[in-house]
Write a protein that binds this DNA or RNA. Structure first.
Length: 1171
RNA sequence: GGGCGUUUAGCUCAGUUGGCUAGAGCGCAUCCUUCACACGGAUGAGGUCGCAGGUUCGAGUCCUGCAACGCCCACCA
């Protein structure tokens, strides 16, 4: 051990970590009758390496884990990573595209295999890096339990959850408007969309008003007697010189003109007088030449904005979609048209031919082409990319004279977080989880997932720290939005569902009535379904997967079913079943050879029972190609990682392959004889520590899933840590160039320094700012770091210096004696034998307060207060004062500070429950005088030094584990036994040592007050010395290292205290001689410091010009006087005296007396100075 | 637009249920290479606590309004 060397983290960190791992300190097994403490790591995405946000979160978790371990819990911190479906796939795909020009073909199974392989390579690389980063940070994770969201164990849980939700009717498939990423060709969640303000335009377009509604009801030729108005007429009138708004045309404003091709209505506000007369009429959709209705919608339309008319494109705009939904089933309902292909091009609906447009009102084409206007059929945008289509549409409108004006307009465009391309809202079939309660006829059948999760927080089973974050959790869940769980990706858990389509073909109508035919079809469909079920059931029985399959109606009528498999085995069996039987008919009638039957179309929606009748068969389609949303597996993380659902499924009873019914089965009881499983022991976890931006995405979903599956919450406490920003309050990110790699910080400052700084940043605010600076590392690399981390580095160095440079050498120096002492200690056990000096009692009292404070702060997840408490205890109390006070006893054989109120230590007689620490000790009123020789005093000082360092290392270990563990080794070498009063051996490894117990120490207010007085005197003399030296420097005189003499006038008791601690007093105040006493005479030509009840005088004749002293006293007097006036003002205020609590008034009075006394003494001094 | 948070020393932040002259670290100034530590020690300067009202004997702290900044959610064609 070198003395005086700067702490070098790099030289110890790897060895220390290896030692912990070798010792198995991170791993815990369930043990009956013990207390577990568990945390599951928020699994970092394998998208990339860890950043500072991960660093702070994992530091905090490690603090909790290490403390719990020291407190004696069976502690498990479960590590792992998240596959992060869309994010990872996007990164890898982008790379493949850039490097090899590779593009994914969604329908090519080979592509699927190739890409998933590539992503897995990426994952392997980054998972390794991430786990290595955690190790370098010192995280004490239970590596044996490392999990990955796509591994077999997690997948098992995912499929089981899907199966149960599916069986309970909580998962459904529906066509909804989703955020579509045209680049990645997948739906993305709302929270994966960010908005970017871009400068765009607002195009104002005229929509010609039709003189007469067409098509609804179908115009019978010649029926109305009024000739239908042609498109040409309408256009001509709308663009003519005397055309009139509201009579001949309407104007709509749009930021996305290309979507007008899919307009199905124009909306106005119901109360808007300008357009009242048009509600219910039709306008002609330009380019498409489609009549669309004018509807009233108070929610969609703001009459103040734009023209007050809104084009309605329900297929591609969320608001319009909502409007469309509102109007469904009403007399003014209108259609919906999908316009885009998955890769963002205009589909076949971008042609101006009415009859080809599904969802249109089926109107015959309006006559066209007679007035020089291009016929509608020439407007064909099919195949154009969105941007191109926009240009063409605008140009065409312009050519038609329908473009009223173009305004510049600032608008927010949704972008995909992953591909950074604009989002296209479009309709798509997706799987959803229902979160609202299930009701029938107004009666609640099942409680909703959202409500169950809200209850868990409302009734306190889950608590947030800080508390306020519960609100955003409750608010978000209150919306009960359904959760879109399918993604059109390949990197993830594939949806375990096969579709069964029941359809008919070659039907003969042979003279039957429509009613008879319909009847026959219905029963034949039912028989076909039954046939399918029977076949599937037989298959399931053969393969032993009964109960692992369930079929449910799709909600699309009786001809489509979904079959879901609960396990990967069942999935494989189903896949085999599909391969073998998808061409087989499960026919209700007939007995044709299946091999000769042609395949039926995948969808049989167009099947029309009114026209034909034939045989009905069930056809199975391939497995749903989509994968599950990443959060679906994340929601299971606390359960899946500990092994849920366990073994319960194998050998479970037949739940029937038929129609799913019944709720999730209760968890089986565990036989008491065997030791608990991981799940039983470590679940629910104690704490979840995470960032606030995923409270809804992740925290809420974990609670939903856990309560649904087990009836229990996944964690008791949710701890939200602050977000780290750069000095300008910006988020840190690689792309912004302000990202900081934890490994660079470790390289530069050491892991402990980083951890300590991060902990000291983690208060209860939601943001903390860290200035980011590029700095050069030793190896020449320039990386982002922050000087903020010098805080931790300096503290670690101080700790290192104090321990290896002072405390331990002093123990080691007397090593033989320390061992002798152990022997003697045995012999004298239970007898008073150690005299604690005042500073010993003081530091032990301070230590006690420090332990209490650390516990209180950590119990409330107030990490910064915990770190700061230790910082000031160790640096200020221990190093600055205790160590300095104790030096005379060690170096010069002084007896230490032993005032009249000396106390001794009594050793408790009973055996200690601890194996590695000190026993509970009690103080006793001692009456003995301070007669101990210096030898004993030095011995006591060493014991206290060792003891306080021991406890400090324990307290600090959770936040700075490496350095404390190393110092623990050194301390063990120097003082293997270091209980305060007995010689019990310390634990070999700090990581397993016991957490300090404040109750073994006593609060000692008397010692605190006395040391405070001592400190005041020392500070007073230091101040005078500095003042003298400053003055001398100004006069170009050399500085004085020490003052020759000081006189202290104070009461008998304080005088005794100062006298007894003379050596320390001289040393700390750098003053050579003292005169102390109640009657000490003030020397002439002295500088003075007036304290409460203590006057300090330093004769400075010949040292410095006394003129400056008067100025100094004058200023002090002025300050004092101002203060006195304030207090006087308070006390002369009658209502203060009358209304304030008596003790407050009393305090003020006492203060006033004190201040006046001081003032008088200062006045005395000034009189003398003036002569 | 809704919600949450922040605003205290040059910078980054503490400041408990209102009650001793508002604190810390960094930075700054002066002095000190004295035998653990210059990644150190000593001393000091520096703050009308965002603004305006209110409650109270008393407000950095509680209430109202305003402003700036940040985050989350929802987003008007």
């Amino acid at each position: 051990m070198s003395i005086g060397g700067t702490y070098d983290p790099k030289s110890i960190e790897p060895d220390i970590y290896a030692m912990w791992e070798k010792d198995g300190a991170f791993h815990a097994e369930p043990r009956p009758g013990r207390q577990p403490f568990s945390i599951v790591i928020p699994p970092p995405n394998v998208t990339g390496a860890l950043h500072l946000g991960h660093a702070i979160n994992n530091t905090l978790q490690d603090i909790l884990i290490r403390r719990a371990r020291m407190q004696g819990y069976d502690t498990c911190w479960l590590p792992g990573t998240d596959h992060a479906g869309i994010a990872t796939q996007a990164v890898v795909e982008r790379r493949l595209r850039q490097e090899q020009g590779w593009r994914r073909d969604p329908h090519n199974p080979e592509h699927r295999e190739f890409l998933v392989g590539k992503i897995r390579e990426w994952k392997d690389e980054y998972e390794k890096r991430i786990l290595d980063q955690l190790r370098r940070m010192g995280c004490s994770c239970d590596w044996q339990r490392t999990r990955f969201t796509l591994d077999e164990q997690c997948a098992k849980a995912v499929y089981e959850l899907f199966f149960r939700l599916f069986k309970d009717g909580l998962i459904y498939r529906g066509k909804r408007l989703v955020n579509w990423d045209c680049e990645l060709q997948t739906a993305v969640a709302d929270d994966e969309v960010y908005h970017e303000t871009v400068m765009g335009h607002l195009w104002h377009v005229r929509y010609p008003i039709l003189a007469e509604n067409v098509g609804v009801p179908p115009a019978t030729p010649g029926g109305t007697g009024v000739p239908p108005v042609t498109a040409a007429d309408a256009l001509r009138r709308a663009t003519g010189p005397d055309s009139m708004l509201g009579r001949d045309f309407l104007v709509v404003a749009t930021t996305r003109p290309e979507t007008m091709l899919a307009d199905t209505a124009v909306a106005v506000h119901p109360d808007d007088a300008r357009y009242q007369h048009l509600i219910g009429r039709q306008v002609l959709l330009p380019l498409m030449n489609r009549p669309i209705p004018v509807i009233a919608d108070g929610e969609l339309v703001n009459p103040e904005f734009g023209t007050g008319c809104v084009k309605v494109t329900p297929g591609h705009d969320p608001n319009d979609y909502a409007c469309w939904q509102r109007h469904q089933g009403r007399p003014d309902e209108f259609g919906i048209i999908d316009l885009f292909t998955p890769d963002g091009k205009i589909n076949e609906n971008g042609v101006g031919d009415l009859r080809t447009i599904p969802g249109s009102t089926g109107v015959p084409p309006v006559t066209q082409g007679s007035v020089g206007v291009p016929p509608a059929s020439t407007f064909n945008y099919t195949g154009l990319p969105r941007q191109e289509a926009r240009k063409r549409v605008v140009a065409d409108l312009e050519a038609l004279g329908l473009l009223e004006k173009i305004e510049p307009y600032e608008t927010d465009i949704g972008h995909s977080d992953r591909s950074k391309t604009p989002i296209e809202p479009l309709r798509s079939e997706q799987w959803f989880v229902r979160t609202a309660e299930l009701c029938e006829n107004g009666r609640q059948l099942k409680p909703g997932l959202a409500e169950m999760a809200r209850d868990a927080v409302r009734d306190g089973r889950v608590k947030f720290f800080p508390e306020r974050f519960a609100k955003s959790y409750l608010d978000w869940l209150g919306e009960k939005r359904d959760w879109c769980i399918s993604r059109q990706l390949w990197w993830g858990h594939r949806i375990p569902v096969w579709q069964i389509t029941v359809g008919g073909y070659r039907y003969a109508t042979g003279g039957k009535s429509i009613g008879e035919i319909r009847q026959a079809v219905v029963s034949s469909v039912a028989r076909a379904i039954q046939g399918f079920y029977d076949a599937l059931d037989r298959f399931a029985t053969v393969f032993g997967i009964k109960g692992q399959l369930v079929a449910m109606p799709s909600g699309k009528g009786e001809t489509v079913l979904y079959v879901c498999a609960a396990t990967e085995i069942a999935q494989r069996v189903l896949e085999a079943f599909y391969r073998r039987h998808h061409r087989t008919r499960f026919a209700a009638t007939g007995d044709r050879d299946p091999a000769t039957e042609p395949d039926l179309p995948y969808h049989s929606e167009r099947y029309n029972v009114d026209q034909e009748l034939g045989r009905t068969i069930a056809v199975m389609s391939e497995r749903d190609p989509d994968v599950l949303d990443t959060w679906f597996s994340s929601a299971l993380w606390p359960l899946s990682t500990f092994g849920w659902p366990g073994e319960q499924r194998s050998g479970s009873a037949n739940q029937g392959a038929g129609k799913g019914s019944g709720s999730a089965s209760a968890r089986p009881l565990i036989p008491e004889a065997r030791s608990p499983s991981d799940l039983e022991y470590f679940f629910p976890t104690n704490v979840l520590s995470t960032a606030r931006d995923i409270i809804s995405l992740w925290v809420a979903r974990m609670v939903m899933v856990s309560t649904y599956l087990t009836g229990r919450v996944p964690f008791q406490h949710v701890c939200i840590h602050p977000t780290i920003q750069d000095e300008h309050g910006r988020r840190m990110s690689k792309s912004a160039g302000n990202g900081v790699d934890p490994l660079d910080l470790i390289e530069m400052y050491g892991a402990d320094a980083m951890r300590f700084t991060l902990a000291s940043l983690a208060g209860e605010t939601q943001d903390v700012r860290v200035p980011v600076r590029p700095m050069k590392l030793d190896d020449g690399r320039v990386v982002n770091t922050s000087e903020r981390f010098e805080l931790g580095r300096n503290f670690c160095n101080k700790l290192w210096q104090a321990a290896t440079g002072f405390v331990i050498p002093n123990l080691r120096h007397e090593g033989t004696q320390a061992r002798r002492h152990e022997g003697r200690d045995e012999a004298t056990k239970g007898r008073r034998d150690q005299r604690l000096a005042l500073e010993d009692r003081w530091i032990l009292s301070r230590l006690r307060a420090c332990i209490v404070e650390c516990d209180r702060r950590l119990d409330h997840y107030q990490y910064s207060d915990y770190a700061n408490t230790l910082y000031s205890f160790f640096w200020s109390d221990f190093c600055d004062w205790y160590v300095e006070l104790v030096k005379p006893r060690l170096y010069e054989g002084h007896t230490g500070v032993s005032p009249a109120t000396d106390r001794s230590l009594t050793v408790a007689a009973q055996p200690d429950r601890r194996s590695d620490g000190a026993p509970p000790v009690r103080r006793d009123e001692g009456t003995d005088g301070p007669e101990d020789a210096g030898q004993d005093s030095a011995e006591t000082a060493r014991r206290v030094l060792a003891y306080v360092l021991d406890r400090t290392l324990r307290l600090l270990h959770p936040v700075v584990p490496f350095i404390t563990e190393r110092l623990w080794q050194l301390l063990n070498d120097a003082a293997p036994a270091r209980g305060l009063a007995t010689g019990d051996a310390a634990a070999p490894l700090l990581i397993r040592a016991e957490w300090p117990d404040a109750s073994e120490l006593a609060d000692d207010p008397e010692a605190e007050a006395e040391i405070a007085a001592l400190q005041q005197v020392i500070r007073g003399i230091r101040e005078i010395r500095t003042h003298v030296n400053t003055t001398r420097a100004a006069a170009k005189q050399t500085a004085l290292r020490t003052l020759p003499r000081a006189v202290v006038r104070t009461d008998v008791r304080t005088a005794a205290l100062l006298t007894h601690s003379l050596a320390a007093l001289k040393r700390l105040s750098q003053c050579e001689e003292f005169e102390v006493g109640p009657d000490a005479a003030k020397p002439a030509d002295a500088m003075s410091k007036i304290l409460t009840g203590i006057e300090v005088f330093v004769p400075v004749a010949g040292l410095v010009d006394l003129g400056v002293e008067r100025k100094r006293l004058e200023k002090e007097r002025a300050d004092l006087l101002a203060y006195i006036q304030r207090v006087e003002g308070k006390l002369s205020n009658e209502s203060f005296v009358a209304k304030a609590p008596p003790q407050v008034v009393e305090t003020e009075r006492a203060r006033l007396a004190e201040l006046r006394d001081k003032l008088a003494k200062i006045d005395d001094g000034m009189r003398e100075l003036c002569g």
